[in-house]
Simulated scan of single mutants.
Amino acid sequence: MKKVALFGGSFDPIHTDHINIMKSCKKDLKFDEVWLIPTYLNPFKLISTSSVNQRLEMIKIAIKGLDFVKVKTYEISKTVRSYTYDTVCYYKKKYPNINFSFIMGSDQLDKFEKWDHFKNLIKAIDFKVYKRSDTYNNEIINKYNLELFEFENNFISSTEIRNLEKLNLQIKEVNDYINYNLMYLYERLESRMTQERYFHSLNVGRYSLELALLNNCDLNKAFVAGTLHDIAKEWDYDEMNEYINLFDKSLLKEPKQVWHSFVGSFHLKKDWLIDDPVITSAVFKHTVADKDMSVIDMIVFCADKISYERDYFDIERFRAVVKADLKMGFKELLKRQFEFAKLKNGVENIGTKLLEAYDWWVTNDN
């Protein structure tokens, strides 16, 4: 009789330990197939932090090449809370000639007896438990005579991935998908920036997208860079100092007010694992620019200065110029930035980066 492992979960997002458990099901437990069953909403969670389509796309990326894994949308397509008992009954009735087992992680043991229709469920199907950590509810294991298995464990969780932890252990292609779709953005930023800064960042992302459409360049990269441009804006200077010391100590000579642009770029490389130079360059240059400015560099620089919530004298003229001629608008905004910095801090405190950019683009009119 065909042996199939039912593996349910939120998979929000799917990660390497999920994949390693599935591989163990095939290699060690000798299942013919693993049926992955993403839930629409875990009964013990109030909300999912990603869309159904996004989770399915991440799963598709993660299981590429694993022919024994099949994705089943029975639960996720119901758009209501999902219960394991209903799923087990559905598949056992539909496929009476398949020997099913249900896969769970040891982290679920504490709530195991609270699962819906538990008394019927524990009789309906055999459970295989994978050891997710060194501490687990051994009392439940013994009480229900459950089998506990080990696997190639990275000891990571979806919660950690959402919170920018252990990304070096995550599936790179899934991490790239998350970054390029700005998933889990609010929970990654809520503790690091004010609501006002957060909405400014969203506005700059939207404005960058609008300018990218006008200038026929990569929409997604402009949108991501614009949205993340101020990611380090409200960090304390001690933390910024650590990143600059790690990546480029010469930048410590620049005014502290512009450190966040450099640190934001370094943070995206180091902690988000964004290795796209187009995005990290635009974040790096969005405050004081540079002699070498790509179209997306200019877009994010300008979008930051004229985003939707900005309101200062002559801003509509700046917006009109930028939309009509990006390079000309960039030069005008760079000139405004230079004059503002000179007025506020004095010409001797402007900083090398802004001075070089101003001389190249405005004084020498390149």
Rank of each mutant, 00 (worst) to 15 (best):
Ile21Cys: 03
Tyr40Arg: 10
Phe68Glu: 02
Asp28Cys: 09
Leu56Lys: 14
Arg55Asn: 04
Phe11Cys: 11
Lys70Cys: 05
Gln54Pro: 03
Val52Trp: 14
Lys72Val: 02
Glu57Met: 13
Lys78Tyr: 14
Lys64Asp: 01
Lys3Ile: 00
Phe31Glu: 03
Trp35Asn: 11
Leu29Phe: 08
Thr49Ala: 06
Phe7Glu: 02
Ile21His: 11
Thr49Phe: 07
Ile21Trp: 07
Gly65Gln: 04
Lys64Asn: 11
Lys23His: 04
Lys3Asn: 02
Lys60Cys: 07
Met58Ile: 07
Lys72Gly: 05
Met58Val: 04
Ile21Arg: 03
Ala5Gln: 05
Ile14Val: 15
Tyr40His: 12
Lys26Tyr: 14
Ile61Pro: 11
Ser24Tyr: 03
Ser51Asp: 12
Ile59Pro: 08
Phe44Pro: 11
Leu56Met: 05
Phe11Gly: 10
Met22Trp: 01
Gly9Ser: 09
Glu75Phe: 13
Lys78Gly: 13
Glu57Lys: 15
Ile37Lys: 02
Lys78Arg: 15
His18Asp: 07
Tyr40Lys: 12
Val80Ala: 03
Ile63Arg: 05
Tyr40Gly: 07
Lys27Pro: 00
Leu29His: 05
Ile61Gly: 12
Ile19Val: 08
Ile19Glu: 02
Val69Tyr: 12
Tyr74Leu: 11
Lys45Glu: 14
Lys27Tyr: 05
Asn42Ser: 15
Asp17Ser: 08
Leu41Pro: 09
Leu66Ser: 01
Glu75Met: 14
Leu36Cys: 14
Ser51Pro: 06
Asp67Val: 00
Asp28Pro: 02
Glu33Thr: 08
Val4Asn: 09
Val71Arg: 02
Ser50Glu: 11
Ile76Cys: 01
Ser77Gln: 14
Ser48Glu: 11
Phe68Tyr: 15
Ser24Arg: 04
Val52Phe: 13
Tyr40Ile: 06
Arg81Asp: 14
Trp35Gly: 12
Gly8Pro: 12
Arg55His: 03
Val71Gln: 10
Arg81Pro: 13
Asn42Met: 11
Asn53Thr: 07
Met22Cys: 04
His18Gly: 00
Lys23Tyr: 00
Leu56Val: 12
Met58Asp: 00
Leu56Glu: 02
Ser77Asp: 15
Ser77Tyr: 14
